[in-house]
Design a protein around this nucleic acid. Structure first.
Lengths: 243, 243
DNA sequence: AAATCCTTTTGATCTATGTCACAGTTTAAT
DNA sequence: ATTAAACTGTGACATAGATCAAAAGGATTT
């Protein structure tokens, strides 16, 4: 198994990502120190640990989550191809959450110690990194609004629409269908709902002909109705940088 | 009224902030383009707007919030002295939430257009900016965990402990007491609770002798018990950069 | 001083969602 | 093939917290 060269990165041409200049491509290639391939269930980054690596997801999916003292788990976000993770440890010195692979995953690895070099030598990429952090902050803010102000069916509709958008933008869509290989428990833990109620609410969405999520495949049958239910102003997909 | 010179900034020597070099101080002074003083209730940044300004809170307090289609409001975070805001608009081109002054506030204003100059000319400050974004991301993640996994009394305890920590670090503490000039409705909107239940839960905390929040002053009577109730591993206050 | 407005407080109900218990289903392990 | 383990699906019941209604306290205006 050989490592994917940045030049041949399957992600960089997707519509959602801003294009690279040749120079940036070379720089990223030098920044990339390796590739990590992990099996489902593998913990990639651990809460409290001080990882020397930062990662961009090349393929596969995972979860970022926190575990509370009482044993409950909060999934903070799902990890999809193109997502960048590990910045917290890279900058603050310690991961504040864990990252786990749900499927097999391939990740581009960068050295934490090179981060400072990046800021000094390539301000445009540093700016992009901050951009990515700002996008994530926006998403987390929206998640907070969902957990705080939406009821169960709205929350699930919101999550499915957002997930669908993300995966679509990452080029994984076929006719309103995207792969979504998580368990219902993962979604429940992401939305602060019980597994039972999540299951029943998914059933409601199914019976209303709005969304089907079975066998690891999510189909949004009526995206506008879903967006409406979720009280989402469907933002036209904005391009963002890829690390 | 004259503008506060960065050299005389009352915040920069607080224990929570990393010290400035003389050179950085000069740079920030040149980066600062003005000072904004607003009355309580003023909207400083508006969701959807494209503000040309970024701000650091010099004094006073405010809220960052989103309004949903159904009229409900989610307070995403409170704004305290030392907080930096507007990065989203600065980088993504549009605010994804609004910012409102709760008390009278004074803010240092920076020009959005200078942001790119900052990245090119002062990588250390750019790094700090990303650091601030990472800290915020961490906090929002913890908020998500609170809304998703803690019950009402734990949520309120969590919020009061975190708020107390922040204000203490900002040097506003006197004997376990900090100023907290928000309404119960603001806290309710931040935690996804109804006003009524927030009120009753605060009463419970009071009657247990754990925390008193009256007349705009928050007193944590038994911080360890509160932290315990909130399932918080009280992180020793980490220094973070100040913009 | 009266009136108005805003916030806090309290009690009485209602309901969305959690918890429990168990039955199918599928996949993996022996 | 059989058992075990993991996930999904469903009904019965319990409850934390929402909603409704209204009072009481302060502050501000007339």
């Amino acid at each position: 198994m050989t490592m994917t060269a940045c030049k041949n990165c399957p992600l960089r041409q997707k519509s959602m990502f801003m294009p690279f200049t040749d120079e940036e491509l070379r720089f990223m290639q030098s920044f990339k120190t390796g590739e990590l391939k992990v099996d489902p269930g593998t913990t990639i980054l651990m809460e409290g640990s001080n990882s020397p690596q930062l990662y961009t997801v090349l393929s596969g999916m995972g979860t970022r989550y926190k575990t509370l003292e009482n044993g409950r788990r909060q999934v903070i976000n799902f990890l999809f191809p193109g997502d960048f993770t590990g910045l917290q440890a890279g900058i603050m010195g310690e991961m504040k959450h864990s990252v786990e692979a749900t499927t097999q995953m391939t990740l581009c690895a960068f050295r934490r110690d090179d981060l400072w070099t990046l800021f000094r030598q390539h301000p445009a990429r540093a700016y992009d990194l901050t951009w990515i952090a700002a996008v994530e902050e926006h998403f987390l803010g929206e998640t907070i609004a969902s957990l705080g102000q939406r009821d169960a069916i709205q929350r699930i509709a919101w999550a499915l629409v957002r997930i669908h958008e993300r995966l679509k933008a990452a080029g994984l869509q076929k006719a309103n269908r995207v792969p979504l290989p998580f368990r219902q428990q993962d979604l429940a833990d992401a939305l602060g709902l019980s597994l039972v109620h999540t299951n029943k609410t998914l059933k409601t969405l199914r019976s209303k002909g709005l969304a089907h999520w079975n066998d690891g495949v999510l189909e949004l049958c009526d995206p506008p109705a879903m967006a409406d239910l979720a009280m989402i102003d469907l933002e036209r997909p904005q391009k963002r940088p890829l690390m």
